[in-house]
Measured scan of single mutants.
Amino acid sequence: MDPFVVLVLCLSCLLLLSIWRQSSGRGKLPPGPTPLPVIGNILQIDIKDVSKSLTNLSKIYGPVFTLYFGLERMVVLHGYEVVKEALIDLGEEFSGRGHFPLAERANRGFGIVFSNGKRWKEIRRFSLMTLRNFGMGKRSIEDRVQEEARCLVEELRKTKASPCDPTFILGCAPCNVICSIIFQKRFDYKDQQFLNLMEKLNENIRIVSTPWIQICNNFPTIIDYFPGTHNKLLKNLAFMESDILEKVKEHQESMDINNPRDFIDCFLIKMEKEKQNQQSEFTIENLVITAADLLGAGTETTSTTLRYALLLLLKHPEVTAKVQEEIERVIGRNRSPCMQDRGHMPYTDAVVHEVQRYIDLIPTSLPHAVTCDVKFRNYLIPKGTTILTSLTSVLHDNKEFPNPEMFDPRHFLDEGGNFKKSNYFMPFSAGKRICVGEGLARMELFLFLTFILQNFNLKSLIDPKDLDTTPVVNGFASVPPFYQLCFIPV
């Protein structure tokens, strides 16, 4: 058959498939802009700032609406009420993970971030239990974070109060905490193996944040037939998995079943207990991918939040002064901060919360999916439909947070200066898919920041009023603009 005829037939089939998918069930789905064949609503979305586009569309179609990214149908949730109703009140029905062709290629359905069903539930339950087990290797997770915080302070001392970009050092600290939990080992910041790991993690975040990856996920045929950065992403992930597998083999040879040292040991012990169960989800494949998931999810998000926190503290020296006064009063100079201190430091706690609220790190979270046909607000959402959640619409709700575009710790303080919780605080998402490392991340943010401010004054290279804190939105995360500062020993 003539190649031209084959091409026309293929394009015609794709067009018909697109029209059929977009028209099927439209009477039951939430409203939304009319999609174009094949490309859907992509032309109506700013790929570099999806969150802003969703906010604009919500003003037209309401808090629940339908979009098509290519052939992929998505239902968008915008605003606290619908997000709570879906992710919390109907948590089980909305607990699936959205379709990610690239991740599915890399992870093969294993791990904790992109798995679904029984596998996801069992691996998540085990990971939560293990991360909360403060007795691994007779050292609590808090001990590990405190140790890394001391190392971080010593690295900052080496800058000798000269101007520096904190990106690298602030990236090393949370990565080392995860390494300590998974591998029972922290690395020197100049260790070549550690630097290679950091390089792969950072490069992957840069790649994932590009519009090209959005295109690959919406048109998965590209993955096999086109060159691009997605190939580098898959190569980096394969490198990390190979490295983790080597460490798993080392653990198998040296493990003491009665004295687990780290996450890998705990997983291997669980595998041993379930070795007679042919349906067990505790396999080497799941261990390797879960460890890679924890490394990827637990490094860049925390380091970016820390980097943004220091920029905001530079911009608002009056806030920094209040935090340091609270540190001096509650902790002093002669001991290290600990998590028990947080309950006695409402202002510092409010500042950490406000940093996370203000920066809105992951504006749309990772997409969910419905696990069955769901009736939601008089609409029928078919099983498997991807759910896109606007966390921006919750964290920047102007009824809950007056002047949401302003950095103001009073958003989390009552009139008496006591810490005030808010149900709208969802930087880790909400419901059954809430970030498994939430507790660890909150511990790291509090301890790293208090250790830094206990030991250093922060000095800006320019007038604080002239510092730009506008986030650089890159399609996946909101990151701070480049800046330098000086760490002046107190």
Rank of each mutant, 00 (worst) to 15 (best):
V479E: 15
S280N: 11
V490S: 05
I182E: 02
N133G: 14
Y61D: 00
Q340A: 15
F487L: 07
V436F: 09
F407E: 00
D414P: 02
S162N: 09
S180N: 13
P63D: 11
V330Q: 10
D293N: 07
A441V: 08
Q184S: 15
R125I: 07
F267I: 01
L388I: 13
A321D: 13
K459S: 08
A297M: 06
L295G: 01
R329V: 11
P464L: 12
F476M: 14
Y225W: 10
N423K: 12
T304W: 08
Y61Q: 01
D262E: 00
G437V: 03
T348C: 06
F69A: 10
C266V: 12
K247E: 11
V473F: 10
G79N: 06
R433A: 03
G79E: 02
R157W: 10
R342C: 10
M443Q: 10
E203V: 07
R261P: 03
F267L: 02
A149G: 11
S162D: 15
I331A: 04
P427A: 14
H368G: 04
T290W: 05
E400A: 10
F263R: 01
Q192D: 11
E328A: 13
R150F: 14
T371L: 09
F219D: 04
L295T: 04
R73H: 07
F448V: 06
L440G: 02
L201Y: 07
K28P: 09
I60Y: 07
P367W: 06
R333Q: 09
E285V: 05
Q22D: 15
G332M: 00
Y80D: 03
D373E: 09
S303M: 09
V83K: 02
Q252M: 09
L268F: 05
E104M: 11
Q324V: 14
E93K: 08
L156W: 03
R26P: 07
S162C: 14
G437T: 03
V208L: 14
V82Y: 08
L29M: 15
Y189N: 05
I39W: 06
M345G: 01
V319K: 05
E318M: 12
V436S: 04
E92M: 08
I434F: 10
E85N: 07
M129I: 12
N116R: 11
R186L: 01
E93W: 11
N116E: 10
N403G: 11
V323D: 00
E81L: 06
W120M: 04
F376L: 09
G25M: 12
Y308A: 09
I381M: 04
G137V: 10
F4W: 11
K249M: 09
G111F: 01
A297V: 07
K52A: 11
E400G: 08
L361P: 04
K52T: 12
I178W: 04
V76A: 05
L467N: 04
K28D: 12
I244V: 09
P63V: 04
G96E: 08
F376R: 00
N176C: 01
G98H: 07
L71Q: 15
H396R: 12
V5G: 14
L170A: 07
S429M: 03
R329S: 13
G384F: 03
T283L: 07
D243L: 15
R342M: 12
N259S: 11
G27F: 11
A291L: 14
L295A: 04
F239D: 15
G98C: 14
T385Q: 04
H368N: 02
I215T: 07
A86D: 02
E85A: 09
N378W: 03
L201F: 08
P174V: 15
S280Q: 07
V83D: 02
L87G: 03
F482E: 15
N259Y: 06
G117V: 03
M339P: 11
Q356Y: 09
G416S: 15
G62H: 00
V288K: 07
L128K: 15
N455P: 00
T385E: 04
V370Q: 00
G96L: 08
S23G: 13
M240P: 01
G40T: 00
P489H: 05
P166M: 03
A161V: 07
P31I: 08
S422R: 03
Y308Q: 06
P464Q: 11
F428Y: 08
H230K: 07
I123N: 04
E72T: 11
L445I: 15
A309V: 05
L413I: 06
L395W: 02
D256S: 08
I257D: 10
L458V: 12
C13K: 01
D46P: 06
R125A: 13
R124M: 00
N398P: 14
Q214S: 15
F65I: 06
E85H: 10
E415I: 09
V76Y: 04
D349Y: 07
E354R: 01
F476P: 08
Q184Y: 13
K432I: 07
T386Q: 09
W120G: 04
P3I: 12
L440K: 02
S140K: 08
L67K: 00
L366A: 04
G91Q: 12
G91K: 06
L237M: 10
Q22S: 10
H396T: 08
P404C: 07
F407N: 00
H230L: 06
I269E: 09
K270H: 11
L395S: 04
P3N: 09
P3E: 12
C10S: 15
E253Q: 14
D293A: 04
V479T: 14
K273E: 14
I181G: 01
T299M: 08
V5L: 15
L201K: 04
S51L: 00
C10T: 12
L485C: 15
K421V: 10
L294W: 04
F65D: 03
D191C: 09
D349E: 12
H78G: 03
P363A: 02
P30I: 03
E199L: 12
D414E: 08
I223C: 14
L57C: 08
R442D: 09
F419V: 08
Q484S: 12
T320F: 06
L16R: 01
P174D: 04
A369G: 07
I169G: 03
L29V: 08
N423Q: 12
I434R: 08
F126R: 01
D243F: 15
G439A: 13
L445H: 05
L366G: 03
C164Y: 08
G135Q: 15
M271W: 06
P211C: 08
D143R: 08
G96A: 13
L313G: 01
I39L: 11
H396V: 03
A173G: 08
I284F: 10
H230P: 06
D360I: 03
L440F: 05
M271H: 08
N258S: 13
I123V: 12
K52W: 06
D188E: 13
M406D: 14
D2A: 12
M198G: 04
D143C: 11
M271G: 07
K84G: 06
N196T: 14
R97V: 03
N176S: 04
T305H: 00
G137F: 11
S53G: 07
C164L: 12
V288P: 01
G135L: 14
G111Y: 01
L312Y: 04
N286C: 04
R119Q: 09
R21S: 11
M271D: 00
G296L: 14
L57F: 15
G296S: 11
P33N: 01
L447S: 05
S336K: 12
E241S: 11
M74L: 10
I257W: 10
Q340M: 04
G137K: 12
P30L: 02
L449K: 04
P166L: 03
H251Y: 01
G343K: 09
F456R: 03
L67Q: 00
R433S: 03
L395G: 03
E325G: 11
Q324E: 09
L461G: 12
P101H: 11
Y225E: 04
I178F: 04
M339C: 15
G296E: 12
E400T: 07
A309F: 04
T385L: 02
V5Y: 15
L312T: 05
F282I: 05
T210V: 06
T304S: 14
L311A: 06
P404F: 07
N133A: 08
L245K: 09
D256P: 06
D188C: 13
P166W: 04
L14E: 00
V76E: 00
L380I: 09
V374F: 02
I387P: 00
R124L: 00
N217V: 08
